[in-house]
């Protein structure tokens, strides 16, 4: 059984995937804040829903960000805590992978089509990563063409140019999809029938090759902490 959860964006979600790849529990709730209180009981709830226990868990997958700093830490802390207690392998999946995964798993994808995952990072910036659907050899359904980065909205077009020819169509998914598609003709908002949440994370993780399961998940903030050097005493 694979346990996956996501707390990086505006949902709190938990999913359990059995060894045959079926979602046996899937809880997803809109949540702007309060993930720290909700997540662990929700994992417990998912286990009950699947009529299973901790001992059935074999692997844990968590989204590592980018997203809200607090949300990122809630998920990664919970994953590390569970892994420590259960001695299980953990995989970190970025929230951008999750967004692109929702597009891929929604079907109607031809090999090689491009997907831009775009999260509104406020301050007129977006967290971006560019993907290509399909990867025959590894089994993971996404190939990352441009690594996660925080990009000013006005620079998004230039950022995309390096990996995307003029006139090439790219589907864009995430909270910054609308604003970006309005300023770049290549971008078209993706239509999906899957919510980008723990259910997608579980399915992505199930495809993740062995090397993805070794180390500890590390938070992906993409932004330095806000800290100013002291200018004097207040």
């Amino acid at each position: 059984m694979l346990l996956a959860f996501d707390t990086t964006l505006d949902l709190c979600s938990v999913a359990l995937l059995d060894n045959a790849g079926r979602l046996v529990a899937h809880i997803s709730r809109p949540m702007a804040r309060g993930h720290a209180e909700a997540l662990v009981p929700m994992i417990d709830e998912a286990l009950r829903e699947a009529a299973t226990g901790m001992d059935a868990l074999k692997r844990i997958a968590v989204t590592t960000g980018p997203g809200t700093f607090t949300g990122v830490r809630v998920g990664v802390s919970a994953a590390r805590g569970l892994a420590l207690g259960l001695k299980l392998p953990v995989a970190g999946i970025t929230s951008l992978d999750m967004l692109a995964g929702a597009v891929v798993f929604s079907g109607a994808d031809r090999e090689g089509s491009k997907i831009l995952a775009a999260i509104d990072a406020r301050r007129n910036q977006a967290y971006l990563a560019l993907y290509e659907a399909g990867e025959a050899t590894s089994g993971y359904p996404l190939r990352c063409l441009a690594a996660p980065a925080v990009v000013a909205l006005e620079d998004a077009r230039v950022w995309l140019n390096g990996n995307c020819a003029a006139g090439e169509e790219v589907r864009v998914m995430g909270s910054a999809a609308e604003i970006l598609s309005a300023q770049d003709d290549r971008l078209r908002c993706a239509t999906v029938d899957l919510t980008p949440d723990a259910g997608v994370v579980a399915r992505l993780a199930a495809c993740l090759p062995a090397p993805g399961w070794t180390g500890k998940p590390r938070a992906l903030y993409l932004r330095a902490p806000d800290a100013k050097l002291p200018a004097g005493i207040k």
Partner: peptide, 19 residues
């Protein structure tokens, strides 16, 4: 609060894992 959350969530996860 950011630090407190890390400790609290880790502890809760451990407590769930170890019952």
């Amino acid at each position: 609060i950011g630090g407190v959350l890390v400790g609290v969530v880790t502890a809760k996860a451990l407590s769930l894992a170890a019952a």
